[in-house]
């Protein structure tokens, strides 16, 4: 099955978000080209999820402008689809029923089930259409959530730490799956993560968020074509730089000795 989506660009200009007097994000400027995969990297609680939610229209900026495909985002945006950290499936619906939530509203009834099944196959879940969410593993539930997002044929796929709650092996498989799906669909992806390796593996560009209130600290282009392996030697320097930016400086053997003493 071919995934036909028209990738959309995202443009953030001077975006800020305050909760009352508490300013969380300030002066975020970012241009994301159609079809680009961008990772928003930052420490826990820095506001990276808030930024993602503002692109999807789940939250509104208190200053600046958020535009998707050249149009201001003023509410829930039909061009975006979100995958959250938790699968958030409706437990009373089958997996196919959950995917159907993402299908276009005008799709005729008799085609909805078949379409849902096709999207499930897209995330390697053929044969599980009739299962209930509580009957499948966490990884399968999260894949269903991804299928639900894909069914929306989004111009921008928003991933809010979608692998954070998965075990290490499942996480690696999910990353490969997202990478495959992105390559076939060409959709724009914004990925929120605090995992440097994940960002280096999946993204074309890594945006490091930091400071208080949070702003863009560094924007780095990741060299090499995808799919890539985060153990590639040319990524080692980037990795150290990003980790240092997150407040985890590389420790030398000497330092380790000092700590031991």
């Amino acid at each position: 099955m071919t995934i036909t989506t028209a990738p959309a660009g995202v443009s953030l200009r001077g975006v800020g978000r305050a909760f009352g007097d508490h300013v969380v994000l300030r002066d975020i400027d970012l241009e994301i080209a159609p079809g680009e995969v961008t990772a928003l990297l930052g420490a826990s609680g820095c506001g990276k999820s808030t930024l993602l939610r503002m692109i999807g229209g789940l939250d509104l900026a208190t200053s600046g402008s958020v535009r998707v495909d050249g149009h201001d985002v003023t509410g829930i945006d039909p061009r975006c689809a979100v995958v959250f950290q938790e699968p958030r499936l409706l437990p009373w619906r089958t997996l196919a029923g959950n995917v159907a939530l993402g299908l276009p509203r005008d799709l005729p009834r008799n085609r909805r089930d078949a379409e849902s099944r096709q999207w499930l196959a897209e995330v390697e879940l053929h044969g599980f259409a009739g299962h209930r969410p509580r009957q499948v593993s966490g990884g399968m539930a999260q894949r269903t959530a991804l299928a639900r997002a894909l069914a929306r044929r989004p111009g921008v796929l928003l991933l809010d730490e979608p692998f954070a709650a998965l075990d290490a092996l499942t996480r690696l498989r999910m990353q490969d799956l997202v990478e495959d799906v992105q390559r076939r669909s060409g959709t724009t992806v914004v990925l929120v993560t605090h995992d440097v390796d994940e960002a280096l593996k999946l993204a074309d560009r890594v945006v490091l968020l930091g400071g208080a209130p949070t702003g863009v600290s560094v924007v780095l282009d990741v060299p090499g074509d995808r799919p890539r392996d985060h153990h590639q030697p040319e990524l080692a320097a980037l990795r150290s730089e990003l980790l240092a930016g997150l407040g985890v400086p590389r420790r030398t053997p000497l330092e380790r000795e000092t700590h031991a003493r």
Binding site: G56, L58, I76, P78, A81, V82, F84, E86, R88, L90, L101, G102, R105, R148, R152
Partner: peptide, 12 residues
């Protein structure tokens, strides 16, 4: 609240 947000995010 999580499910309600999903509903909103998917246009309901």
């Amino acid at each position: 609240a999580h499910l309600v947000e999903v509903g909103r995010a998917y246009g309901l």
